[in-house]
Computed example of a mutant assay.
Amino acid sequence: MPTATDFKDYYAIIGVDKNATPEEIKRAYRKLARKYHPDLNPGDQQAETRFKEINEANEVLSDPEKRKKYDQFGQYWHQASQGAAPPPRDAGVGVEGFDFDQYGDFDSFINDLLGRFGGAGRTRGRTYTYRTPTGEPTGFTSPPADTEAAIALNFSEAFHGVQKRLQLDNEVINVRIPPGAKPGSRIRIQGKGHPSPFSQQRGDLYLTIEVLPHPFFKFADDNILCEIPIRPDEAVLGAQIQVPTPDGSVTMKIPPGVRSGQSLRLRGQGWRQPQGRRTDLIVKLQIVPPKDISPIEREAYETIQANTSFDPRAQLQEVRL
């Protein structure tokens, strides 16, 4: 039976206010899960313990019904979620002496509990039965609980799919991640959640995907984004260049007169989607001038500078405060 010292402040563990919205809780959980994930902290026992606490807190606060029970009953929320009523707060008697295991059902426990608090004479001959909203008597019936965990993948694993071995508590689980997993997506693994302590039936495991940063590719909604440097002459005259994609280089045509920061789209060269389809690759161009040039190049640039009529700052002449 939990005591006041068993209480865990799940809001403090996640780092949010008690009135935090589900979106705020989700953001805070993902940030902490990424920070303390065992894959990113190999051999760090404190990080592993912190990661388990974060997942435990998120499991309760991300579930509206569990969160409601937790807010209402504090450290007794789990008993309440199983159909049990928490011990009276004003009884003036400690509850650490009560052991659920000695009772065949909750009715027996609550009758004994009320007898101790109120006196044997007051409860003799009475039967206290607690019922669910549908009218059914409650007992020690605890439904299997779903479990939430986070898994970190690199870009290649997320794009191509991967088989992973996860250590959850004392169990090793083999998980197949399908191609095209995106940050924040969830994968359901049936029958790998927490078991009911009475029926031993297990809930499901929900894995939240975290994709580690890549030095070249980034996510841009459903598409992916990369930046490509081009020379000034390629920007002026146009060119055909090679652009890396997740599964190899392709040729892209740069039209004449592009600006630095302008984006071009390579259709069907982005992230994997179900049924084998692909999103787009957005290519952001960056014009990069050379730092070291040959005498011939310098002469060519000086000739252009002396003979050009183009003034990119002409429109700034009328700017005034």
Rank of each mutant, 00 (worst) to 15 (best):
T3Y: 07
A4H: 06
Y11C: 02
I13E: 00
I13H: 01
N19D: 13
E24I: 00
K31S: 14
A33S: 09
G43N: 06
Q45A: 14
R50T: 14
F51H: 06
L61V: 01
S62R: 13
K66F: 15
A84L: 11
A85N: 12
A85L: 10
R89L: 11
G94I: 06
V95P: 01
F98T: 06
F106Q: 00
D107R: 15
I110W: 10
R116E: 10
G119F: 12
G119C: 11
G119T: 05
P133G: 05
T134P: 02
E136A: 11
T138H: 14
P143N: 12
P144W: 07
N154A: 09
F155W: 15
A158H: 00
L166S: 04
L168A: 05
I173K: 01
N174G: 01
V175H: 02
I177S: 00
P179L: 12
K182C: 01
S185C: 01
S185H: 05
R186F: 02
Q190N: 10
K192I: 01
S199M: 05
D204Q: 09
D204V: 00
L212I: 15
L212W: 04
F219V: 05
C226Q: 04
I228Y: 10
P232R: 15
P232W: 15
V236Q: 15
A239E: 02
P246M: 09
S249H: 07
P255A: 07
G257R: 12
V258S: 03
G261K: 14
R277K: 13
L281C: 06
V283Y: 06
L285N: 00
I293G: 09
S294C: 06
P295K: 04
E297P: 04
E302K: 12
E302M: 08
S309M: 15
F310D: 15
P312A: 06
L316R: 15
E318P: 03
R320N: 11
